[in-house]
């Protein structure tokens, strides 16, 4: 009869209320993801004074400003680079990167793979809405084939990244994917991602109703977020490479939940230990 309660989480404690209402379009999944992130922060008991949010450019990047923490809205594609410096210089801070599919995978793709490889204690939340929303709806590295955007007016023909597979292949210690409609699951995933010592990559399937959904006849926000969920299949929570719910009933494609969790040496700690060894050797 364990009574767990969500009572203590009041999102307003984590928001810069004077900036509201926020600038996101109606039904934008980024807002839901933001809630999940702050909820996870709350559950982990992270003091917002010790929380650093580094975000890139785009709709995703703008969300950081609404968080009442140390927020850094940096250059396009580079939040992981900034965060790397910040986290190495300030291991006492909890550094979370908010980025988008274009920010993270296109212009910032190089930083992503190296951040994964380096395995520094960072959490990267990539809000994937399949489109460059802020610039008016151009195709991104995750825009599915046949989708219409302002730069794929006859339907996209480019293959897409599976960002999670990319991150895992690049060596990220923790990789997960979740949809916004599963807010508590997303919260749990982010919570585990932040708690994970090492580089954590979380892809959030967000929806861009106004610019992308309309153009592709994907329905309004409620339907979009529901569709996202149903095209996913959950990996067994907490089990690495766990089984998935689909046979014999579901035709699905991407997995959700924790996809990879390995304990590789965390770069920051490894570096500090290495440096301490060097200093000790010099003294003796």
């Amino acid at each position: 009869m364990d009574e767990i309660s969500a009572d203590s989480f009041n999102i307003r404690d984590y928001l810069r209320l004077e900036l509201f209402p926020h600038f996101l379009c109606p039904g934008c999944g980024h807002g839901i993801a933001l809630r999940a992130l702050l909820w996870a922060i709350h559950e982990l008991g992270i003091d917002k004074n010790d929380l650093a949010i580094v975000s890139g450019i785009g709709c995703s990047g703008r969300t950081g400003a609404y968080i009442d923490a140390n927020t850094f809205h940096v250059t396009h594609g580079r939040p992981l680079a900034f965060a790397t410096g910040l986290a190495l210089a300030r291991p006492d801070l909890e550094v979370v990167v908010i980025t988008g599919d274009g920010d993270c995978l296109a212009i910032g793709g190089n930083h992503l793979i190296h951040a994964c490889r380096r395995n520094l204690n960072l959490t990267c939340m990539m809000l994937n809405n399949e489109v460059y929303g802020m610039t008016g709806g151009q195709a991104s590295p995750t825009t599915s084939a046949t989708r219409y955007t302002t730069t794929t007016q006859s339907g996209s023909i480019e293959p897409v990244f599976d960002a999670c597979a990319l991150a895992a292949a690049a060596g990220a210690g923790f990789v997960g994917r979740e949809v916004t409609i599963q807010t508590p699951a997303l919260k749990n995933l982010l919570r585990d991602a932040i708690a994970h010592k090492g580089f954590s990559f979380v892809e959030v399937l967000s929806d861009c109703t106004e610019i992308f959904g309309r153009k592709n006849d994907l329905g309004e926000s409620p339907e979009m977020i529901m569709t996202q969920k149903s095209t996913m299949r959950p990996a067994s929570y907490g089990v690495v490479g766990g089984n998935i719910v689909d046979e014999p009933f579901r035709a699905t494609n991407l997995k959700t939940g924790i996809l990879t969790r390995t304990d590789r040496p965390e770069y920051g700690a490894a570096y500090r230990a290495h440096a301490a060894g060097i200093r000790a050797a010099r003294k003796s």
């Binding site: 680079a81 410096g85 300030r90 801070l93 190089n110 440096a275 200093r279």
Partner: peptide
């Protein structure tokens, strides 16, 4: 490392200055 600081070789020059700015924003 001798001075108690951090050296990191980044993936490119953009990232390098990004990291430097990040570290500086953190106070270093």
């Amino acid at each position: 490392p001798r001075a108690g600081g951090v050296f990191v070789q980044m993936e490119d020059e953009i990232a390098s200055l990004g990291a430097v700015l990040g570290a500086s924003m953190g106070g270093a």
